[in-house]
Every structure is written in structure tokens, then in C-alpha cells.
Amino acid sequence: MVDILIAEDEPAILESLNFILGRCGWSVDSVHDGDAAIEAVRRLRPGMLLLDIMLPKRSGLDVLKAIRSDAFLKHVPVLILTARGQQYDRQIAAELKADGFVTKPYANNDVIQEVRRLLGSPAQG
């Protein structure tokens, strides 16, 4: 099982997230667009989804809506990660029952703390 599925289309951010979360001991997989995010959550059943709002093909908010309306997926914790820190995005994400919200640019430690809050500490080894 994958601990964290990252849905992010910006290569540098994706590489950074893969590195910092993998270094902490979590297993990580990634996708680059909203359609792939929904398919991967269904297929991989990750411990959580780290979800960018601005994604190609389908927005992160549409992905969150689809996950929350699926009986088999609605329990998956979703941490929203976005450059769009407007109150509107936070409000919509909260209404769709996002489990957390981190705004870019972010401190690595902020992301790690939110992942720990949602997943607990990784099993090392």
C-alpha cells in the first residue's frame, strides 16, 4: 500500500514533495492530473491524498468532490496543497470536507506536520 498519493502537475514541487516525504519514511506515488488522481486513489487506496487545486483535466476541487461522493473512497484523508490561498478556495475545500489545507509557498515542515497529523509517523524500516 502507498502511504501518500501526490496529485501535482509542477515537476519541481512534485520532486521536492517526493523527496521530503520519502526521506521521512513514507511510501509515495504521484500523478500529474485530476483524472489520473481519481483513478490512482481507486487503484492504490493510499493512506492519504496530497492534492493540488490547479491540475490539468480536472481541478483538485472536482477530484475532492468525486472522492467524497464515492462510498469506497470518502474515508481517504485529503490535504489540499495550492498556490491559491484565497479564502474562497479554503471555504470550498472545507465544504467538501478536506482534512487540511497548506498554501504554496510552504515550509517543508508544515507539510510534514500535516501529513503526520493525518497519517501518524511512518513505520521506519
Rank of each mutant, 00 (worst) to 15 (best):
residue 54 M to N: 12
residue 56 P to Y: 06
residue 26 W to G: 05
residue 56 P to L: 06
residue 48 M to F: 07
residue 15 E to S: 12
residue 54 M to T: 13
residue 38 I to E: 02
residue 18 N to G: 13
residue 48 M to R: 06
residue 17 L to W: 00
residue 43 R to C: 11
residue 15 E to Y: 07
residue 50 L to V: 12
residue 21 L to D: 03
residue 31 V to S: 04
residue 26 W to S: 09
residue 55 L to W: 03
residue 52 D to T: 07
residue 23 R to T: 13
residue 25 G to F: 05
residue 46 P to F: 07
residue 45 R to P: 01
residue 35 D to E: 14
residue 24 C to R: 13
residue 39 E to F: 07
residue 39 E to Y: 10
residue 41 V to Q: 01
residue 35 D to A: 11
residue 37 A to Q: 01
residue 26 W to E: 08
residue 29 D to V: 15
residue 27 S to K: 11
residue 55 L to S: 06
residue 25 G to V: 12
residue 46 P to Y: 03
residue 23 R to L: 12
residue 41 V to S: 00
residue 36 A to S: 10
residue 46 P to Q: 08
residue 24 C to H: 13
residue 44 L to G: 02
residue 30 S to K: 08
residue 52 D to H: 04
residue 42 R to K: 15
residue 44 L to Q: 10
residue 38 I to S: 02
residue 48 M to Y: 04
residue 46 P to M: 09
residue 22 G to P: 01
residue 54 M to I: 15
residue 31 V to E: 03
residue 16 S to I: 15
residue 25 G to R: 08
residue 17 L to K: 02
residue 22 G to K: 08
residue 17 L to N: 02
residue 19 F to S: 11
residue 46 P to C: 11
residue 16 S to G: 08
residue 49 L to H: 04
residue 38 I to V: 15
residue 21 L to P: 01
residue 57 K to I: 07
residue 19 F to Q: 11
residue 45 R to G: 07
residue 54 M to V: 15
residue 20 I to R: 01
residue 55 L to T: 08
residue 48 M to W: 04
residue 53 I to Y: 00
residue 28 V to M: 03
residue 57 K to T: 10
residue 48 M to K: 05
residue 54 M to W: 09
residue 34 G to R: 05
residue 58 R to P: 00
residue 15 E to P: 03
residue 19 F to W: 12
residue 37 A to E: 01
residue 40 A to R: 00
